[in-house]
Simulated assay, not measured.
Amino acid sequence: MEEVLRIGSLESTDLVASVLDLAIGPDSALYVAQAMVPAVTVFSLDGQVLRRIGRAGQGPGEMQLAAVAVGWIGDTLWVADVNRIQLFTTDERRPEQVIQFSRGVPEEGSSLAPGRMLADGTLIGRRRITDGRALSSRGANPGLALRRLSRSGEVLDTIATMEWPGNAIEHERDARLFPGEHPLRDLPPLGLGEYLTALMPDGSAVVQIGKVHEDATPPTFDLLVISIRGDTLLHRSVEYEPREVTRAMERRLADEYAGWRAGDYPPSSPIFERTRRAARRVFWVPEYHPPVRQVVAGTDGTIWLLRELREDRVDIWEVYDSGGTLEGTVEIGHGRSSLVPWDPRLAVALASRDEVWGATYDDYGIPYIHRYLVDRTCAPGPAQNGA
């Protein structure tokens, strides 16, 4: 990949906080949601600020704390904040509709607020964990339901069931730590916010990794595309070679996980050393790496899969066509998408055969948006511009 655009700098105030979501509108502008920014910033595709949509507040056209997700369905711009979605059509200052609800799911220890718009005008909820022990005590691999909701919060149906293979690291009660996501099974930094599941940018379907058949001969994982009505559009078994989690990787992840829970990023005070010890005591690793770490649904029907965490921390993305056939790979060896040390190098937000948009931080915590062009004619060789 060749970097052709970078938005953000130490001197600029255009991009002031971490990127939570971005979308390209029908006007070919870039719409960006940022943490702690109660507005959507609109950039031209050459990186110039065009305007901002929204302001701080709780009324129509205002954002509570921050815009957390943004997208387009046809000619409608939808913007999600903490607990609602606003729909804008002809006037960016006044929404056509404000959607707000909270739907409790006690069996999962969670609640659902408006999360993302679907192509038919219904919604996927944004999951908030309200009872971590209820979530993690439901038995062996029970799965989580991806529900389709009406604009009033009524559950219409279940699009798909997401595999949930023991993601939590449980902590002793005296450690006072909420169960944490395992570094090898963490949630994506951008997108739907569900494990190994991505929503197509047009809101018409979801792409997900289903069951992993580790004990099969040969081992396979299920690559699925499911319409928002629940119809299976693609079910492909992808063969893979299991990679053992080495002792060196186990020690490294244990140190990083314990350091993260103890507050090493940024550095902690000594009072958190008890937390570090407690986190190390309960840390575990599976025998083999999960074959896929993250999923991104391409804007052109491609499917992007981030493969196993490597010792050298180079990210390997595999690119599949809409029929599940592998077309090529992309290697990303530089950058960081968050302060979490095991996160991907680049938080991929939008991808296609021709270009990739993503977000990173520099060593000073300054956020950046990057646009890369994909050279599909290149032979394997040294990375260009960090990719």
Rank of each mutant, 00 (worst) to 15 (best):
R243D: 03
H171E: 07
L177M: 13
A113N: 12
P367N: 05
R280A: 11
W284H: 08
R371D: 10
D14L: 12
E308C: 03
I169F: 04
R336A: 12
P38C: 10
A69H: 04
E241I: 13
D362F: 03
G180C: 10
P218G: 05
A216H: 09
S136C: 10
G230L: 06
R376N: 14
H235W: 06
L224H: 11
Q208R: 14
R261I: 13
T246I: 03
H289D: 14
F88N: 01
H182S: 01
S18A: 15
P183D: 05
R94I: 02
W72N: 06
E194Q: 11
R310D: 07
E170Q: 09
E327L: 15
V82G: 04
Y31L: 06
P270T: 04
D131H: 02
A254R: 15
L135W: 11
L350T: 09
P290I: 09
N385Q: 13
Y361N: 09
V330G: 00
D354W: 08
S9C: 04
I129H: 01
T246D: 03
P242I: 10
R55W: 05
M249G: 03
P290R: 06
G230N: 09
L87H: 04
T329H: 13
S12E: 15
Y320C: 02
G121M: 01
L224K: 11
P95M: 02
V82R: 11
P267H: 07
E92P: 10
G71Q: 01
P380W: 04
Y257P: 03
D343R: 14
S28Y: 08
A387W: 13
E107N: 07
Q100N: 12
I332M: 11
A145E: 15
D81E: 04
T232G: 08
